[in-house]
Design a protein around this nucleic acid. Structure first.
Lengths: 145, 145
DNA sequence: TTGAAATTGAAAATCATATTCATAATATAA
DNA sequence: TTATATTATGAATATGATTTTCAATTTCAA
């Protein structure tokens, strides 16, 4: 059974908040997890709708929020104002390299950068909670076009 | 005369686009530049309105867009979805350290981080155009409260 | 099994931002 | 300068993404 871990996390979270399970939530979770892309809410809505036509838009938004709250999903706010969602579970923390031509996302990490950020924050007297690093550029394929 | 440079840049930009000068644009520019804060459109609107009560909301948005286009102003998209504007002219490129309690902004740069970003991008075959690094944490003052 | 509580989809409400439109201001060419 | 064409303005309206409302349905604990 794929995504058993994520399902468990989600179910535990729902129970812990005295919420209830529903087939829609599980359907959305399934489609979300099996799609290895950074999706907008609308894209996810279309994908889910294709397979489960009775789904409502509001349920997508409501479920995305729950998924973010329980750590399965993370919101990505981009420079152009769009919001995309990616699964977090099973992915280490990472930053993003984004192609401004084709929209490709590459997940990257540099432990050195992370360390320097901590140092920078400390120097200013901050306790760092999280950070967001997005690098926009042109990928190899798009450059050669 | 303060902000003469910025005024020049703005006027040149307006002329270059065959647009027209207006007193509202200059009023907005003035208030924007003299306020050393990262303002939302609404905050800027209130500030301008206080001194020039006949100003319209649309003119604020239209002027902010022009100011961004000519490089005087930069849009800051934050994690919570709000958009804030800061002056760029006379400020070197910088990243942000943001206090999640009091909302304080600290502008920081680390040449080492910049260099590592370039390296990272290169490794993935990207030509880097710009980046956005926001670090969220708790500032010294808020920690002691 | 049942009934209180949560969930759903559809529609309406929000909220920030953008656009429309009639009027006013600006700039260019004579 | 003045006439004319073009752009800018403010108010109102539209837009688009996200949220909320609401009546009907579903879930689940006792």
């Amino acid at each position: 059974m794929p995504f058993e871990d994520e399902r468990q996390i989600f179910e535990n979270y729902i129970r812990s908040k005295n919420l209830k399970q529903s087939k829609q939530r599980m359907q959305i979770l399934e489609i979300f997890l099996k799609t290895e892309k950074h999706l907008t809410a609308e894209e996810l809505y279309r994908l889910v709708k294709r397979r489960f036509p009775s789904i409502g838009y509001a349920t997508i938004y409501r479920t995305l929020k729950l998924l973010c709250d329980c750590g399965i999903c993370s919101e990505l706010r981009l420079d152009d104002g769009t919001i995309r969602y990616e699964h977090l579970y099973g992915h280490e923390h990472h930053d993003h390299l984004i192609c401004i031509k084709c929209g490709k996302f590459v997940e990257v990490v540099d432990p050195e950068i992370e360390k320097l950020q901590e140092k920078l924050a400390k120097k200013e007297g901050f306790i760092l909670k999280r950070h967001r690093l997005q690098m926009y550029g042109i990928c190899k394929e798009c450059r050669n076009k």
